[in-house]
Amino acid sequence: MKSIGVERILREFKDQNNFMEVQTSGSTGVPKIIKIEKSHMRASAQMTLDFLGLQKGNKALLCMSPAHIGGIMMMVRAELGDLNLTIVEPSAKPLENLVGNFDFVAMVPYQVAASIDDLHRIKKLIIGGGPISSDLEDQLRNLPNEIYHTYGMTETISHIAMRRVNGSDNETFKTLPGIEIHFDERGCLVINAPALGVKDLATNDLVELKNADTFVWLGRHDNVVNSAGVKLHPESIERKIGDIGYPYFLTGIQDTKFGESLVMVVESDESMEFETFKNHFQALGKYEIPKQIFTVPKFVITESGKLNRKETLNRMAQ
């Protein structure tokens, strides 16, 4: 099947214009429309095809929204690599009503979590659009297929690096061919990718560089909590805590004594006591334990399905 949106995107990609207009996700700011050169899109697609060793005729599945770069680039990869592309409407369980296996599929984390029992039908799976919880990673770690978590953004024309979730070094991202990386004075990743039209793109992602083409993602610079001079990375601590039975995130609030105080925000209609989650904090260091627990009825989610921490925190304050 092909939705109207998919057909429109394919027509636009094949027309005579050199650019396509794509909307950013809005996960760290207001969504905006940017122009992307089609030659750069083809270069990005070829990088992924080469990195994963995909071949002509391989069966691929598009189950992400065609309105954003992740879905658009699945179509471009299929066109460039002559893949056999099946298209379904985005849903939590895209494989549920499909028959057979697939060589290549891209999903967002919530689709992966809902499709655990069907993932064995996918030879090579890439996961994008947000972080993967530690509990989901535990479920994926021993699966026999190739499962990758991707790093990238609309401005880099989807991913520029991947890490093998069920590999021997499952924390380290490896860049795709032709990608150059370093970090700036903040410790944030800077990307150079001539084939993608990307030059000195400074991100807000704090990283630990392993070598010229590998890095470990620590978290967002704008999410760092400075508590009594100790810099805490909420995303890294969240991975240690794992699943608590409720959607949650860690953040900092102003504190007269420490400057900032690390707190946990839980999506719930009911108030939560610290003791409720005490067992989940046992693996944390002294400064990593949240000082308070707050609840909000509903988190703010962007159009592309990502948590908007800043707006959720504003809602909590209100």
Rank of each mutant, 00 (worst) to 15 (best):
Lys2Leu: 14
Val6Asp: 05
Arg11Ala: 15
Phe13Arg: 08
Asn17Tyr: 14
Thr24Trp: 00
Thr24Pro: 00
Gly26Met: 07
Thr28Gln: 14
Val30Ala: 15
Val30Lys: 14
Pro31His: 00
Ile33Lys: 13
Lys38Trp: 03
Lys38Ser: 09
Ala45Ile: 06
Thr48Met: 08
Leu49Ser: 10
Leu52Ser: 02
Lys56Asn: 12
His68Val: 02
His68Lys: 01
Met73Cys: 07
Met75Leu: 15
Val76Asp: 07
Gly81Gln: 04
Leu85Tyr: 12
Thr86Tyr: 10
Ile87Ala: 14
Val88Ala: 10
Glu89Thr: 14
Glu89Tyr: 10
Ser91Thr: 08
Ser91Val: 03
Asn97Ile: 11
Leu98Asn: 07
Phe104Lys: 10
Gln111Arg: 01
Val112Lys: 01
Ile116Ser: 11
Ile122Gly: 06
Ile126Cys: 02
Gln139Val: 15
Arg141Cys: 11
Leu143Ile: 15
Pro144Gly: 07
Asn145Cys: 12
Ile147Tyr: 00
Tyr151Ile: 00
Gly152Met: 01
Met162His: 10
Met162Trp: 13
Arg163Phe: 03
Val165His: 01
Ser168Met: 15
Glu171Lys: 12
Thr172Lys: 11
Thr172Pro: 06
Phe173Trp: 01
Lys174Ile: 12
Lys174Val: 15
Thr175Leu: 02
Thr175Ser: 07
Pro177Ala: 13
Glu180Met: 11
Ile181His: 03
Leu189Cys: 08
Val190Ala: 05
Asn192Ala: 04
Gly197Met: 02
Ala202Gly: 07
Thr203Glu: 11
Thr203Gln: 09
Asp205Pro: 02
Leu206Pro: 00
Thr214Tyr: 07
Asp222Cys: 07
Asn223Gly: 06
Val224Leu: 08
Asn226Arg: 12
Val230Leu: 11
Lys231Thr: 02
Pro234Arg: 03
Ser236Glu: 09
Phe249Ala: 01
Phe249Asp: 01
Phe249Met: 04
Thr251His: 08
Thr256Trp: 08
Lys257Leu: 13
Phe258Cys: 12
Ser261Arg: 11
Met264Tyr: 00
Val265Tyr: 02
Ser268Arg: 00
Ser268Trp: 03
Ser268His: 02
Thr276Glu: 13
Asn279Arg: 10
Ala283Glu: 14
Leu284Arg: 05
Gly285Thr: 07
Gly285His: 09
Pro290Met: 04
Thr295Val: 09
Lys298Met: 08
Ile301Cys: 09
Thr302Asp: 08
Ser304Pro: 01
Arg309Ala: 06
Lys310Ala: 13
Thr312His: 02
Leu313Met: 15
Arg315Tyr: 09
Met316Phe: 05
